[in-house]
């Protein structure tokens, strides 16, 4: 042992690997962000800073397509996140505060089913299902598929939070003449709020990000941002894709930062 102090916890090299890990994780994102400000027409030659590709996204030849796709993406994500978070909040209350019951394990299995099944299988199954009942593919099919897919993502942070809330709070509320409904809305719901917000943000991001399921169940001509980007990339990478990517990256980072502070903040202090 060459080290001055014998530390049982420290393994030489682990720190290096961690840093390497961070470099691998961040390098592609940083590089794309930098190149999105490239003035050059070509992908790789650096010709100085410019916002031309951002301008291109908003007013270039493809701008109409991207604007429409962005609108679709956000509308779908908001609806899917609101609905799936509401369903997940009720379900978490039933699961965590419903005592022991026969269908409990089965219910948990059903709720986490979309997490266990590979996404492409979910996509195929959903497409086939809509086809078999003669449901025309369009925005609606995307919304429905996203609601189902987002439920487990919203459910996990909510139920985790709820398990950390002792039931003595609701009992105290009932002891103080609150009905069960009042105990839920006045005590349990506010205490669950950080979990609900985390669940909502996670569901929102998952819906906004989804490519595979959307690609299968969308109707012809309906695009979301990921499917539009994928279509463009397939025709060859252009710098405007990097500008869009950077903007979406910004949205993600804003969301994750909110989520981080929500999980740290506490309405009990």
């Amino acid at each position: 042992m060459a080290s001055k102090q014998f530390d049982i916890k420290t393994y030489g090299g682990f720190k290096g690997i961690t840093l390497l890990c961070l470099v691998v994780l961040y390098a592609p994102l940083i590089v794309v962000t930098i190149y999105s400000f490239n003035a050059s027409q070509s992908l790789t030659n650096w010709e100085g800073l410019s916002l031309r590709w951002y301008a291109d996204v908003f007013s270039g030849p493809e701008s109409a397509k991207f604007k429409e796709a962005a609108k679709n993406s956000f509308v779908i994500a908001i609806i899917a996140a609101v609905v799936s978070t509401s369903i997940a909040t009720l379900a978490a209350t039933g699961m965590v505060r419903g005592g022991k019951f026969k269908l409990r394990t089965l219910s948990f299995g059903l709720i986490s089913l979309p997490l266990m099944v590979p996404e492409i299988v979910t996509a195929v199954a959903t497409l086939i299902f809509f086809n078999s009942i003669g449901f025309d593919r369009g925005l609606m099919t995307i919304v429905l598929a996203h609601i189902a897919f987002c439920i487990p993502f919203a459910y996990l942070p909510i139920s985790a939070r709820m398990q950390g809330i002792e039931d003595s709070y609701e009992q105290a509320a009932q002891d103080l003449y609150a009905t069960k409904r009042q105990a839920f809305t006045k005590i349990l719901l506010p205490l669950m709020m950080p979990g609900i917000i985390s669940g909502f943000l996670l569901a929102f991001i998952v819906s906004l990000d989804d490519f595979i399921i959307t690609n299968f169940v969308k109707g012809a001509g309906v695009e979301t941002l990921p499917t539009a980007i994928f279509g463009s990339v397939k025709q060859g990478m252009k710098p405007n894709i990097m500008a869009i990517s950077t903007m979406l990256l910004g949205v993600s980072i804003v969301m994750v930062t909110i989520s981080y502070f929500v999980s740290k903040s506490d309405n009990t202090k």
């Binding site: 003595s168 105290a172 002891d175 003449y177």
Partner: peptide
């Protein structure tokens, strides 16, 4: 009767003060 219909009140072991 449910707890909210009983004119008795409880001081809980861990107090159960509503933290929010």
């Amino acid at each position: 009767l449910p707890p909210n219909k009983r004119p008795v009140n409880t001081v809980f072991q861990n107090y159960a003060l509503f933290p929010h």
